[in-house]
Design a binder for these strands. Structure first.
Lengths: 113, 113
DNA sequence: AATATTATTCGTAATTTTGCGAACAACAAA
DNA sequence: TTTGTTGTTCGCAAAATTACGAATAATATT
């Protein structure tokens, strides 16, 4: 049995999957892209960029925070959000390595194509 | 819940989210990494690498196929799987651009850190 | 024809995700 | 104190995800 059937995966794999999962929704990609294009902004600014209710935006922000990709700071009565630089770099590197792993090939599966 | 009809996102954003979502599970990351390390292999080989039932592996493979990241070819009585080179490159480029978009910053949200 | 191998599909269940409006909390302003 | 602004949380519902064993299909072997 090549892989012990104990239902776990290596840390690197779980970490990459966690980052990918956090990015696995267009609203969250939109949020990240928006935040990445500036220093920081308020919840209301993000909300105005998205075609969904504020309650839902708040939920997506929570998921991104839990994944470590963004941070939020209370500035009464507003909340300022920004990219979490450290984990953003971690994610960047994880994806970079993942794709770099691909070996060059001649032909795959389908020689007739 | 599939975004309500009048609430959509740009194609690029949806595409990146779709790739990310497909990568958002450790089993699928494992499969992709395994396939990326070789030319191609059979279902049984993939199955042996994972700590989950074959029915579940089959489901994950279907998701990766639907996302366009892999392909499967029947070679009775086996099925040969491989990375879909074209879409893999598309995904690679999409992630690369996404992370490249980040502007360099001095300090974010938390000057006291 | 009967049997073995390989992988998908079916049926089902538990959990998570996505979404919204309403209610709420915290603070500022009038 | 009352009102307004900002954003989170609550309560709920629909849909998707993840997982497994059993059944099935397709082919090769005996």
């Amino acid at each position: 049995m090549a892989y012990p059937k104990n239902k776990t995966y290596d840390f690197d794999i779980e970490e990459l999957a966690r980052f990918a999962k956090a990015m696995g929704h267009p609203a969250r990609i939109s949020i990240l892209r928006y935040l990445a294009s500036m220093d920081s902004c308020f919840f209301g600014d993000i909300c105005r960029e998205l075609p969904i209710a504020k309650a839902t935006v708040s939920q997506h922000l929570t998921e991104l925070k839990n994944a470590g990709l963004i941070r939020g700071e209370i500035e009464p009565p507003k909340v300022r959000y920004c990219i979490d630089q450290e984990n953003w770099e971690k994610a960047h590197e994880a994806f970079r390595q993942f794709f770099a792993n691909m070996q060059p090939k001649d032909i795959c599966c389908n020689p007739e194509d």
